[in-house]
């Protein structure tokens, strides 16, 4: 495997924890600044300047948190599973660490999506929880995250834990479309067409532009949090190596 280098060079550099630590150290402040600017700007735009929805009034403004967190919860799972696959195939330590670092962020995003969905549901549906297809799928996604995290913390050996979690994350990834489909199908079977939270015919630009800003801001935030956790993980796993010793002595 080592002889055949058929992936771009950065891919192999990424495999080096030290290189990864250094590059994330350089990227971190930029992403942090971008996340702060985008999230604050997006939130101000969303709360102050975006027009109120003609049906839902101002409770519509919750969309600017609900949708980005839901999108991020799903992308984070995807990233986690892909990192797991890379870790399994190329035995790449950094990928194992990415998997471990992405799980808690994704789970907290799922919690945020669920909570904002529930809070939004109260003025829209009149109850805190409705077994709506999207909310239910998000709840199951949250359970999948909990499973990966529980497995990862239950196994003591770090590389075994990472490999086992990777298998579970991949099984979950195969299952997500099936779960989504089955839940949507179950939903139409049991409920008359209700007022959907997020499905809007042709949202005007002054409504979706702040949403776009928030989504990009959430991605930047995710990158920041992921890099922070990844760097912690690198230091912990590489604590016996020379370069980490040097790093510790320097500080």
């Amino acid at each position: 495997m080592a002889e055949k280098k058929w992936m771009p060079r950065w891919f192999y550099q990424l495999a080096s924890p030290r290189w990864c630590y250094e590059i994330t150290g350089k990227l971190l402040p930029w992403f942090f600044a971008a996340a702060v600017v985008l999230l604050i700007g997006g939130a101000v735009w969303a709360l102050l300047f975006a027009p109120a929805d003609y049906q839902q009034g101002n409770s519509f403004r919750i969309i600017y948190l609900h949708v980005p967190s839901a999108i991020l919860a799903q992308s984070a799972y995807m990233l986690m599973a892909v990192a797991g696959a890379v870790g399994l195939i190329w035995k790449m330590k950094v990928a194992d660490m990415v998997l471990k670092s992405a799980a808690p962020i994704g789970a907290s995003m799922a919690v945020l999506a669920l909570a904002t969905g529930a809070i939004w549901g109260k003025p829209t549906w009149g109850s805190w929880w409705v077994w709506d297809a999207r909310l239910t799928s998000m709840l199951i996604l949250f359970f999948l995250y909990l499973g990966v995290m529980a497995l990862n913390s239950a196994i003591e050996n770090e590389s075994t834990a990472a490999q086992a979690s990777a298998v579970l994350a991949l099984v979950g990834l195969v299952n997500i479309p099936i779960i989504k489909y089955s839940v949507e199908w179950w939903n139409t079977l049991h409920q008359p067409a209700t007022f959907k939270l997020t499905e809007k015919p042709a949202m005007p630009a002054e409504m979706w532009l702040p949403l776009l800003v928030m989504v990009i801001g959430f991605y930047c935030f995710f990158a920041v949090s992921l890099m922070q956790r990844l760097r912690n993980e690198i230091i912990w796993r590489e604590r016996r190596t020379g370069w980490v010793r040097e790093l510790l002595n320097k500080q």
Binding site: I140, A154, G172, I178
Partner: peptide, 30 residues
């Protein structure tokens, strides 16, 4: 799959349920 992932652990029983139950949902629905 859950059993295989947790076989090396002393307390695998509860963990299996956590890992596997969400994956069972489509079968339950259909």
């Amino acid at each position: 799959i859950g059993a295989a992932l947790t076989v090396g652990l002393k307390k695998g029983g509860v963990l299996i349920s956590l890992l596997v139950l969400p994956l069972y949902i489509p079968v339950l629905i259909f």
